[in-house]
Design a binder for these strands. Sequence first.
DNA 1: TAGGGTAAGACAGGCCACAT
DNA 2: ATGTGGCCTGTCTTACCCTA
Length: 237
Amino acid sequence: MDMKISACQLQGLFDALPDVVFFVKDCSGRYTHANLTLVRRLGMKRREEVVGRHVADVFPRTLGVSYASQDRRALTGETIENQLEVHILPNRAPGWCLTCKYPLRQRGDICGVIGISRDLRKPDGRHPTYPRLIRVIEYMQAHFAESLRVHTLAALAELSVAQLERHFRHVFQLSPQQVLTKLRIESAMRLLQGAGSVADIGLACGFTDQSAFARQFKATVGMTPRDFRSLQVSAAP
DNA sequence: TAGGGTAAGACAGGCCACAT
DNA sequence: ATGTGGCCTGTCTTACCCTA
């Protein structure tokens, strides 16, 4: 039996998940489907306010450009899996999530992009290795500005590197590297509210140089550090 | 079948040149 | 001053296989 599920049905199902954003876009980057979670996070009330519009029209310019280029990658057949991202919510609070995007095919031809972004949930505190992993997290929080090696972290937790990787993903949904990136970017977003050059802030957050910082920041936040700073300034009360 | 190690491919860091 | 992109190197992650 060949069962087909429509995008509309999926959209309806995803309406029930308040911590998952669901969307479908056509080749030109216009939304054809959006669950209610996405609609609300865009600061809108009704689905019709989103469907038919272009990403560039519903997000701040710099973000829209970045999401559009991500979509283009998917449109060439690339799949994006569990990319760690920050979404700036309507109240300007940053929300961390993991994004997946896939090309949407119809009779073999790519006709759009389908994807989800799910919020990071609370770590699983009942996992047997949780107490050891917390040691690692605390160490990372204290030392993210330095260069960290996984084998150091593994030794700290008295686990093999392979164990650390596996358990980390189970408990935090993230690899140690992703947690490190999250800590560094969070810190950078704070520092960018104040004065100080972008390059210096990058160094202060553990990035080896300005180039690495800008690249990672854009990949995670969707805009460059400078754009982020000016967005914060323009949105400040 | 859970838990462990390992090899290979993916990915980030580091550096530089050049664009904006 | 900051951002982008290329290229090389070494680290990290994943997929796989082994063992108890």
